[in-house]
Amino acid sequence: MKAFKHITANSVEEAIALIRTHNGKACLIAGGTDLLGVLKDEILPDYPAAVINIKTIPELDHIKKNNDGLKIGPLTKLADVVAHPLIKKRFSCLSQAAAAVATPEIRNMATLGGNLCQDTRCWYYRYPQHVGGRIMCHRKGKGPCQAVKGDNRYHAIMGAKVCFAVCPSDTAIALSALDAELEITGSQGVRNVSLNEFFTTLGNILKPDELLTNIQIPYPPKGAKQAFLKFTLRKPVDFAIASVASVITMQDGICKAARIVLGAVAPTPVRATDAEASIIGKAADGVVIEEAAEAAMAGAKPMRMNAYKVEITKTLIKRALLSIFQ
């Protein structure tokens, strides 16, 4: 790995101050399982002068109950998210999503905040510098999205215009279904955004001097049922080809509220609002489920090689709803 300076931050304020001192030439490291890959492969034209360790900020690693629900520090390890009994019980789709990430060793290192902030896995974007040089593209600020004419089997089937890389985060999908809110702290103060507002086509809304400082998840409505399904070619290691998280509230056999979120289909997590609308107020049956899946994918525009993702996503939606309704 190319050289950089390493600085340990002991508080959020210090971390922000350090980023500012380095004028955009610094990056934050938490679990490191994504960042070190980016740095080793030198996939980006800019290499940081400094890496700022935030693992040493004590107030960012916690899972706390409060009146509104659960507050999770972004430095919480995925393994701790998986093992937490309350998360397992009340926020099961998050627990499942965290358990579906990568491998046991990575879950022992990677953090929830890092899983949300990780960079995309697009194989053009990730192409290493040392086997002929990195590939430039729209996301890196030069040239078109290489996936448009290239091998786009894993790329977006909806919602993409300039960059067709998909959001790789599994936990983001679950947190979106759970209507989580993220607390962002920067030199300008603290702001709160919903999970879906956080993500953008080219990553997220974090400004260079901001970091994620809390994840607040409200308790799901009473009687709400949850599901998380992830489709991969293999169980461990893989990032999602498609995933679905849903939180559905049923009352007397009628769907009262629904959040259905799709992963790995677009540059950001996608709330399938049409699908949600199509089931609210209805009794759950095969036809309703079928319609919901069709509604969710109505706007899909698959690329040359990824129409299969549309079919798979439909199936995941149907299976998620079926598991909830049963």
Binding site: R121, W123, Y124, R126, Y127, P128, V131, G132, I135, Q146, K149, G150, D151, V237, D238, F239
Partner: peptide
């Protein structure tokens, strides 16, 4: 990659 000749999955995730 049939356009550029890059081997796209040269890591043990892909």
């Amino acid at each position: 990659d049939g356009n550029s000749g890059h081997m796209l999955n040269l890591n043990m995730m892909d």
